[in-house]
C-alpha cells in the first residue's frame, strides 16, 4: 500500500505533499482562515457554511486531498473507508450547545448546533460530499497516534473491509487547529507507484513531522 497524497493544515497554512497550496497572513482567526482556504478551491458547496469548525477543517483538508483524484470512480464507493483520530472530540461546539441551555430564561437548544456535538459528523460530511459508503471509525486519542492508525488500517485492508482509505488526524480547540490527512491506495491501482511512499508507521510519522 502507498500513501498517494498527504495534506496538512495548521498555523494558517495548507500543504499538500509538503508543498504550500494555501497560506494567508491576512486573517488570524480560524473561522476566517478556513473559509478563505475553502474559497481558494473555487468550489460551490453551500453546506460548508453550515458546518462547525471541526467539520470545516476536516472537509477542507479532504477537498485538497481528493482534488483531481477521481477516487470515487476508481474504487467501489463502499470500499473507500475513513479512519480518523482526534483529541478534543467536538469540544468547541459542545461548549456552544451548553451555552444555549445553561440560561433557562434564554433556553433555545439548536438542532443545527447539537448535531455537530458528535465528532464523527466530520466523516459524514466527507462521505456525503464524495459519495463514500465505506468504513467509518473515529478514535479519540490524546495525541496523533501513527502506530494505532497504521495497525488498524492494515488489519482492515487485510480483511478486505476496504480497498482505499482516507485517514489521519483532525483536531480543533479554540484557535489550536490541525488536520493531517493521508490518501492510502494499493500499488496495483497507481500507475507511477515508484513516486510514492510506502504506507507504514515510520512514513506516516515522517510526513506528519516534516
Amino acid at each position: 500500500m502507498l500513501i498517494t497524497r498527504s495534506v496538512h493544515i495548521t498555523h494558517q497554512r495548507i500543504t499538500c505533499d509538503n508543498q504550500t497550496v494555501f497560506e494567508t497572513s491576512d486573517v488570524n482567526i480560524f473561522t476566517e482562515f478556513i473559509k478563505a482556504g475553502f474559497k481558494s478551491l473555487n468550489a460551490t458547496y453551500p453546506k460548508f457554511y453550515k458546518m462547525d469548525s471541526l467539520s470545516k477543517l476536516a472537509f477542507v483538508a479532504s477537498e485538497f486531498l481528493l482534488r483531481d483524484q477521481d477516487i470515487a470512480q476508481r474504487y467501489a464507493p463502499e470500499s473507500i473507508g475513513l479512519v480518523f483520530q482526534n483529541a478534543a472530540s467536538s469540544i468547541d461546539i459542545d461548549k456552544d450547545h451548553q451555552l444555549t441551555i445553561q440560561d433557562r430564561a434564554n433556553y433555545f437548544p439548536s438542532p443545527a448546533l447539537f448535531v455537530y456535538t458528535l465528532p464523527n459528523i466530520m466523516m459524514g460530511e466527507i462521505c456525503i460530499r464524495n459519495k463514500f459508503f465505506g468504513e467509518n471509525a473515529l478514535f479519540i486519542t490524546e495525541k496523533f497516534d501513527a502506530e494505532l492508525l497504521y495497525n488498524h488500517i492494515t488489519v482492515m485492508l487485510a480483511k478486505h473491509k476496504m480497498d482505499a482509505c482516507i485517514a489521519g488526524w483532525t483536531n480543533v480547540e479554540q484557535e489550536q487547529y490541525e488536520s493531517f490527512l493521508l490518501l492510502i491506495e494499493p500499488e496495483t491501482m497507481v500507475s507511477n507507484s515508484k513516486e510514492f511512499r510506502t504506507f507504514d508507521a515510520a512514513n506516516i510519522l515522517k510526513l506528519y513531522t516534516i
Binding site: P77, E78, L82, P111, V115, I121, M123, G124, E125, C127, I128, N130, K131, F132, F133, G134, E135, N136, A137, K159, K161
Partner: peptide, 13 residues
C-alpha cells in the same frame, strides 16, 4: 465472527 461499518453518504442527521 466479524463485522463492518458504512456510511449512508446522504445526510448528517
Amino acid at each position: 465472527l466479524g463485522g463492518a461499518s458504512s456510511n449512508d453518504a446522504n445526510h448528517i442527521s
